[in-house]
Simulated assay, not measured.
Amino acid sequence: MIQMVPIDTIADDAVEQLLDRAFGRDRHSRTAYRLREGTQAITGLSFALVEDDALLGSIQCWPVQVDGDDGSVWPLVLVGPVAIVPERQQEGLGRRLMEAALAAAEGSPPLTLIGDPEYYGRFFGFDAAPTALWRLPGPVERRRLLARGANVPALPGVLGPRRHALA
């Protein structure tokens, strides 16, 4: 039976091996890694799926922020990576993880991610429009930089790791 558990109950090296299998060993050079540099995954929003002690998938959420060109600071939650072992993809496991993270994120700052707009827009309400003026610490396909939430800052600014604690 597949169980959803907090990701902090899974050994870090098991999660790293899963991410290597799902995204390749070169994944650390991607812009998403720069966005969460120096931060820790948000425990209450990050989950794993296990079956018979085998790790099937994981989702992690990270504290990030937009520093507006006007001096404002907007806390956000970066969703991802969502990783599923290759042999179990297309079984809806990623969707289960995403739904768990979204439910846990109710009342949190707005969410952002880098992903497929056709999938994340259609099933989870993410949209690229509010992120159009954000600058990132690396390359990104603009249509893949998505956000979701009532207070997404649709203003010019830099998206990066969160440096300020939430009050």
Results as ranks from 00 to 15, higher is better:
Arg144Trp: 05
Met98Glu: 03
Ala11Gln: 14
Gly115Pro: 10
Ala41Asn: 03
Asn151Phe: 02
Ala150His: 01
Val82Ala: 10
Phe123Leu: 15
Thr131His: 08
Phe124Gly: 08
Ala101Lys: 05
Leu97Ile: 11
Phe126Asp: 03
Ile114Leu: 14
Leu19Gln: 13
Ala14Met: 06
Gly160Cys: 02
Gly94Leu: 07
Asp20Met: 05
Asn151Pro: 00
Ala105Tyr: 11
Pro63Gly: 11
Gly149Tyr: 00
Arg142Pro: 02
Pro75Gln: 05
Glu118Gln: 13
Asp67Cys: 02
Asp20Trp: 09
Glu118Met: 08
Val82Ser: 12
Arg162His: 07
Asp8Met: 07
Pro117Ala: 10
Arg27Glu: 04
Gln89Glu: 15
Gly44Val: 09
Ser46Thr: 01
Asn151Glu: 10
Asp67Phe: 00
Val79Trp: 07
Leu49Ile: 09
Gln3Cys: 15
Pro110Asn: 08
Phe123Lys: 15
Val73Ile: 15
Arg36Gly: 04
Val152Arg: 05
Val50Ala: 06
Trp74Leu: 02
Gln3Thr: 15
Pro137Cys: 05
Ala100Arg: 04
Leu56Trp: 07
Arg21Ile: 02
Gly80Met: 09
Ser46Gly: 02
Gln89Ile: 14
Ile84Arg: 01
Pro63Leu: 12
Glu37Ala: 11
Asn151Val: 00
Leu35Asp: 02
Val140Asp: 05
Ala147Asn: 03
Arg148Gln: 03
Gly44Ser: 13
Trp62Gly: 01
Leu102Gly: 02
Phe124Ala: 13
Ser58Cys: 11
Ala48Thr: 07
Pro161Ser: 14
Asp70Phe: 12
Pro130Tyr: 05
Ala154Gln: 00
Leu49Gln: 03
Gln40Arg: 10
Leu145Arg: 02
Val73Pro: 04
Gly71Asp: 07
Gly138Ser: 00
Asp12Ser: 13
Pro6Gln: 09
Pro156Asn: 06
Gly125Lys: 11
Asp67Pro: 03
Gln40Thr: 11
Ala167Met: 04
Met4Cys: 11
Ser46His: 04
Ala83Asp: 02
Phe47Gly: 00
Glu37Phe: 04
Gln40Ala: 12
Thr31Ala: 07
Trp74Cys: 01
Ala165Tyr: 08
Glu16Leu: 13
Ala100Val: 07
Gly92Met: 14
Arg95Glu: 12
Pro75Tyr: 03
Leu76Cys: 00
